[in-house]
């Protein structure tokens, strides 16, 4: 009887510990998502130029990370999350390319042309109208130039520059070698500098 009671007590303690672990993990994951979600949204939005769809992609990525990789070490979450997001972005772009081909076949225009960067631009943040206008125009130019980059260069530039991932983290997120990351990043930044010109800087 004593052995049974002891086993029961041990199992209760183990159960309590599991619950505490789960709660702590959820809290850490919440902090991680809160820290990364806005930047992830803007990165997705720059890639696909559609805020609603970008929100959906970010949500899908968060759910996938929470469902499948929440038990992985915290330091792996960032590259894992961006790897999921980049895969979602690529899938979206492939579907969109097929959709556009079908639309062209049936004589419908490209709805991407309806994207209005001014309407989609963020709200002002306490700047004077001139400063705000300059900042907005500079960001629009940058977004347009980034959008025109080849996909892998775009990913490398945004993950390295906007998300501040190191080369190894970017390689993990992109699913390629560190050498490829360096090459893509270098080509991207030179291409952007050429496109935007000296006056932008």
């Amino acid at each position: 009887m004593n052995a049974y009671a002891a086993n029961f007590a041990v199992s209760c303690v183990a159960e309590d510990r599991r619950e505490v672990d789960t709660l702590q993990r959820e809290r850490r994951l919440n902090q991680f998502f809160a820290g990364v979600e806005k930047r992830a949204l803007r990165i997705a939005e720059i890639s696909i130029r559609n805020r609603d769809d970008a929100l959906d992609l970010v949500q899908d990525s968060m759910i996938k990370l929470a469902r499948n990789y929440a038990d992985r070490p915290d330091e792996e979450w960032t590259p894992l999350f961006y790897r999921i997001l980049q895969n979602r972005i690529r899938d979206w772009q492939r579907r969109q390319a097929v959709r556009n081909r079908v639309m062209v076949f049936f004589g419908r225009g490209n709805e991407e042309d309806d994207y209005d960067p001014v309407a989609a631009a963020p709200d002002p943040a306490g700047r004077t109208p001139d400063e705000e206008l300059q900042t907005r125009e500079a960001m629009q130019s940058l977004e347009a130039a980034i959008s025109a980059l080849p996909g892998r260069q775009r990913e490398a530039f945004m993950l390295r520059t906007f998300e501040c991932l190191d080369v190894a983290g970017t390689a993990a997120a992109m699913g390629c070698s560190e050498g490829s990351v360096k090459t893509h990043y270098s080509r991207a930044i030179h291409s952007l500098r050429d496109t935007l010109g000296e006056h932008w800087q």
């Binding site: 930047r39 949204l41 805020r51 929100l55 949500q59 990370l65 631009a121 963020p122 960001m139 906007f162």
Partner: peptide, 24 residues
Amino acid sequence: FDQSVDGLDGETRSRLTRSRQEAL
């Protein structure tokens, strides 16, 4: 980029928070 992130509107922030809750 950081300025554009800081300037995200309230509705978008709210949608992100709901997405996070669903993910958790």
